[in-house]
Amino acid sequence: MAKTIQITFDATDPRALADFWAAALGYVVEAPPEGYATWDEALTAFGVPEELWNSRSAIVDPDGVGPRIFIQQVPEAKTAKNRLHLDVRNAVGLAGGKRMAVLEAECERLVALGATKLYRIEPQPPLENGFITMADPQGNEFCLD
Rank of each mutant, 00 (worst) to 15 (best):
1 M>H: 09
2 A>L: 10
3 K>C: 11
5 I>C: 05
7 I>Y: 01
7 I>G: 02
7 I>A: 09
7 I>Q: 02
8 T>M: 14
9 F>E: 05
13 D>I: 09
13 D>Q: 13
14 P>G: 07
15 R>H: 12
16 A>Y: 14
19 D>Q: 13
21 W>T: 05
25 L>Q: 10
26 G>I: 00
27 Y>I: 02
33 P>K: 11
34 E>W: 03
38 T>K: 09
42 A>C: 14
45 A>T: 11
45 A>H: 15
47 G>Y: 08
48 V>C: 04
48 V>D: 09
50 E>F: 03
51 E>P: 02
54 N>D: 15
55 S>H: 07
58 A>Y: 01
61 D>M: 09
63 D>E: 12
67 P>H: 00
67 P>M: 00
68 R>N: 04
71 I>V: 06
72 Q>L: 11
73 Q>S: 09
73 Q>M: 14
74 V>Q: 08
75 P>I: 03
77 A>Q: 12
78 K>C: 00
78 K>I: 13
80 A>L: 08
84 L>F: 11
88 V>R: 11
88 V>I: 15
89 R>H: 10
90 N>C: 15
90 N>M: 15
99 R>D: 05
100 M>R: 10
103 L>V: 03
103 L>I: 06
105 A>T: 13
112 A>L: 12
113 L>I: 07
115 A>N: 04
116 T>H: 09
117 K>W: 06
119 Y>D: 07
120 R>S: 14
122 E>S: 08
123 P>V: 09
126 P>S: 10
127 L>E: 13
134 M>I: 11
134 M>F: 01
135 A>Y: 00
135 A>S: 10
136 D>I: 05
137 P>T: 04
142 F>N: 01
